[in-house]
């Protein structure tokens, strides 16, 4: 391929993964030969049964785990070649909660998303404050405005509910202001209104030209907001395509069982957005 054509592809597809495999220690492989592309401006939803390897895949894509085979390319460059700061400036990750919730104010946690920019623009160790990061205030302001974190801005994150903490983590990832955004179950503890709002935010991020990958168990939200769905099962890509292609009985039932009702959302929700409703089979059912 011509080199310039190659770089053009890289610019349009900021995140590319080829043949990823991963195992924790000597254990069973968690990922087997996963390849995916995350183009700029696209919202990609990743789903799959528990233990399918979704969070592990997100860690590998974010450069936090080394794949045992395959490679992850960020803007055409292997992610392993980036320094931690460069990686954080390219890839923002919203984790599924934190190991330990530190006793810090919401403001501090959200501002910690700017770390990679503060260290980068200031002079080495002496870049301690926001003043070294000219775009910091604007990015934090936008993140706060989108997530509504200003309501508890001065409170300790330990005092917040699960859903509020999730919104703070989303705000931090937005404040990081990276062209690639990976969100691991951002709507897990949110009420329905905020679930919609969170997907609205991710959608806006994609429309602003970012490459957004969201892990979710909510097919119906994914169906309305995502451009493309990927179903991960037992560590490999089981199916991918637009929502109408993936949310079909032939795709889902071999993986999740036969307990779904398939339908289509009313017009206006998006182009042919299907919905899937899990249901409890009664004793009289065959």
């Amino acid at each position: 391929m011509h080199p310039s054509a190659d770089s053009k592809t890289a610019a349009a597809v900021p995140l590319q993964a080829h043949g990823l495999a991963f195992a924790y220690g000597e254990g069973e492989p968690v990922l087997r030969d996963v390849s995916l592309e995350l183009p700029a401006g696209e919202l990609l939803a990743l789903f799959g049964p528990n233990g399918a390897g979704k969070s592990t895949l997100l860690r590998v894509l974010g450069g936090l785990l080394q794949p045992s085979a395959g490679s992850v390319q960020v803007n055409g460059q292997a992610i392993t070649q980036l320094s931690p700061l460069e990686r954080a400036r390219s890839v923002a990750r919203m984790p599924q909660g934190l190991d330990v919730w530190p006793d810090v104010r919401v403001a501090d946690l959200v501002w910690s998303g700017r770390y990679c920019h503060q260290r980068a623009t200031g002079w080495g160790p002496f870049a301690w404050g926001a003043e070294r990061d000219p775009n910091g205030s604007a990015a934090v302001q936008a993140a706060v405005a989108a997530t509504g974190c200003d309501a508890w801005w001065q409170r300790s994150v330990r005092e917040l509910s699960g859903g509020e903490r999730e919104r703070v983590l989303l705000a931090r990832a937005l404040a990081q202001d990276a062209p690639i955004l990976l969100a691991d179950e951002p709507t897990r503890s949110l009420d329905p209104e905020h679930q919609l709002a969170a997907f609205e935010i991710l959608r806006e991020q994609a429309q602003a030209g970012r490459a957004v990958l969201v892990v979710t168990h909510d097919w119906n939200l994914a169906s309305q907001f995502a451009d493309r769905l990927i179903c991960l099962a037992a560590g490999s890509v089981h199916a991918q395509g637009d929502p109408a292609e993936v949310l079909r009985p032939e795709v889902l039932e071999p993986i999740f069982g036969r307990h779904f009702h398939f339908g289509e959302l009313p017009a206006g929700a998006g182009p042919r957005a299907p919905f899937v409703l899990p249901w409890r089979p009664g004793p009289s059912q065959p």
Binding site: G62, L64, W101, R119, W128, Q176
Partner: peptide, 25 residues
């Protein structure tokens, strides 16, 4: 001190999280 103080603050939420934020742990 100035090379590690800010980073140790980010360590509080776990090492992986610090790494994701760009800390050379």
């Amino acid at each position: 001190i100035p090379f590690v103080a800010r980073e140790l603050d980010l360590f509080e939420a776990g090492e992986e999280d610090a790494r994701a934020l760009g800390v050379h742990t």
